[in-house]
Write a protein that binds this DNA or RNA. Structure first.
Length: 555
DNA sequence: TCTTTGACTTAGAAATATTTTC
DNA sequence: GAAAATATTTCTAAGTCAAAGA
């Protein structure tokens, strides 16, 4: 990257691209695929298309949920002809199972395609990528992140989303705003027009459209490997490193503020303590009824915490139980300092469960305060800082004389500590139990092998003694075999532990978004090659860090 | 000042590709 | 060489936060 970008807020000087790739048009079902409403019924193409969205999802839990069904049916009816509308009045009487069968057969057929057919599809995708997947920004050819427009379908919100099942409409060129240099712009598909072509170099997106579920804007932007994303990422970690330099001061400050005579300052200070200690998100307020009911720090309600003056052998315990981003549950019991506890009791006085815990605070107030404490400081910087510093500390304990696989395991453990801190969870993989069993079987087999090998070694020893040979080759061989099997067994056991501990924890998010990649690059000081830590895509995203960091790098 | 909008990062699930196992 | 297991990539929803608008 060239040094020193402009100071006037412009993000680029030149931008040229081919525009987005649209979803393929709807292909009507073959006549053999039936839809029944009591009896056989042939749907109009628009109604049929929306029906297929539902038919494809029949095995999904979504289609059993009342809200999903209600929203879907309402939007589906909008696509029906008046005749269809008058006939189809009850979703429960609709039979999509033939459609569902058909799509299953189709996807099975796709799997069974010959090598050449698969190759052909691959080549076609590659051609599309080459044509639409790149742009020129300033002097570089850059990979675009999402050059395909989202196809129409049924909205799948996370958690208890009031809009789940609504129809996500098809996006046409007339919906798209193109952003590029004013020299030349992409052509819209034959016979269509763009909504607008603009030339705004204060933003980084190439195209945008307004989505119909929430009315929010969606963007086409560059891949994480691009200069514009990389520089921003680097900047993010530099801000977190600046926090490292003044975090002690800030911590002392908020501890002082716990004693403030002003309620809003106490609330701010307690909230900041949670953000720092527990890595909670800021918690913007959300429009009620438009989204799932989730919260972050500033939007915590009385019902989300419980106070225990004494719990087992601990004092001043706070129990958190709430749904955070993506409706992932945050559950934690944590002893806090007496002052924090007393403040919380005060905040709870005379409130109902559904009242805000921090009624004098919001993210805007909090971030304005943080900005005064350090330039560029916001609530999310604490997550970045605490994640990265945790990784670095955990890695310090890495032992020099471990093997590479053992070091990788330790790295994963450190990564896991961060993921736990940030509450990055996943649904246990569907095949988890099975795969655990398989691994256990392998371990058992290996143990049997080991005992056999040990017996053989013993026998060889006895032979050796009896024969009084100078040296016995078999003895050595058997000894080696035992050693080898022991190692293999160890490896399997380690793998089992690692997998078990990872059951419900997602490592990817922290690896990609919270851990300063230069810390990982510096693992070369333990002769851990970067390829063992990052796969190809990750190395592309973190190219800047791989270039920059030496083994003495300190976060 | 308060609310809304816009731009961007962060998130887990699902789809797809690759590797391993039988 | 197929099927199963695992790793990677894609997808798009759901956050954060500053700036614009009322």
């Amino acid at each position: 990257w060239e040094e020193e970008r402009s100071t006037d807020g412009s993000k680029w000087r030149f931008l040229e691209h081919k525009g987005p790739v649209f979803a393929p048009p709807y292909e009507p079902l073959p006549d053999k695929v039936k839809f029944y409403y009591d009896k056989l019924m042939k749907l109009s193409a628009p109604a049929e298309e929306v029906a297929t969205f539902f038919g494809k999802m029949l095995d999904h839990e979504y289609t059993t949920k009342d809200i999903f069904r209600k929203n879907f049916f309402k939007d589906w009816r909008k696509e029906m002809t008046s005749e269809e509308k008058s006939k189809i009045t009850d979703l429960n009487k609709c039979n999509f199972s033939d459609m569902n069968e058909y799509f299953k057969t189709q996807s099975e057929a796709r799997k069974q395609m010959s090598k050449q057919e698969k190759q052909k599809i691959k080549e076609e995708n590659e051609r599309l990528l080459q044509e639409y997947g790149f742009c020129i920004m300033d002097n570089h050819k850059e990979r675009i992140g999402n050059f395909r427009i989202e196809p129409p379908g049924l909205f799948r919100g996370r958690g208890d989303h009031p809009k789940m099942g609504m129809l996500k409409r098809r996006i046409r060129p007339e919906d798209i705003i193109i952003n590029c240099s004013d020299s030349k712009h992409p052509k819209p598909p034959q016979g269509t027009k763009w909504k607008e072509v603009r030339h705004d170099n204060k933003v980084t997106w190439l195209a945008s459209w307004t989505e119909n579920i929430q009315g929010s804007i969606k963007y086409i932007m560059l891949n994480p490997s691009s200069r514009i994303k990389g520089e921003k990422d680097w900047q993010k970690y530099e801000t977190a490193r600046r926090l490292k330099k003044c975090v002690d001061r800030i911590r002392n400050q908020y501890r002082e503020d716990w004693k403030s005579k002003e309620m809003r300052i106490r609330q701010r200070a307690v909230a900041l303590y949670f953000i720092d200690k527990l890595a909670l998100r800021a918690g913007n307020e959300k429009e009620e009824g438009e989204t799932a009911d989730t919260v972050g720090c500033c939007s915590l309600r009385v019902e989300h915490i419980k106070l225990y003056p004494k719990m087992d052998d601990q004092e001043y315990v706070v129990e958190f139980d709430f749904l955070g981003k993506d409706s992932i549950r945050y559950y934690n019991k944590i002893p806090v300092e007496k002052r924090v506890f007393k403040n919380l009791q005060l905040f709870l006085e005379n409130k109902q469960p559904e009242d805000d815990l921090f009624d004098r605070l919001n993210t805007s107030i909090l971030n304005k305060h943080l900005q005064e404490l350090m330039d560029g400081l916001t609530a999310k910087v604490f997550r970045t800082y605490n994640a990265s510093i945790t990784l670095q500390q955990q890695l310090k304990e890495l032992s020099c004389d471990d093997s590479i696989p053992a070091k990788i395991l330790s790295y994963n453990r450190a990564n896991r500590a961060v993921a736990i801190l940030c509450n990055h969870q996943r649904a246990p993989p569907k095949t988890f139990e099975k795969s655990m069993q398989n691994l256990q079987t392998k371990i058992d087999e290996k143990q049997n092998q080991l005992s056999t090998a040990k017996k053989q070694l013993k026998a060889a020893k006895a032979d050796h003694k009896a024969s009084h040979d100078e040296k016995s080759k078999t003895l050595e061989v058997k000894r080696k075999a035992v050693q080898r099997i022991e190692e293999q067994l160890m490896k399997l056991q380690v793998q089992a532990t690692d997998r078990e501990e990872n059951k419900q924890i997602a490592l990817g998010t922290s690896k990609l978004n919270y851990l300063d990649p230069r810390i990982s690059v510096a693992c070369k000081k333990w002769s851990v090659p970067i390829e063992k830590i990052y796969n190809k895509t990750q190395r592309e995203k973190f190219a800047w860090a791989i270039d920059m960091a030496e083994k003495d790098y300190e976060f």
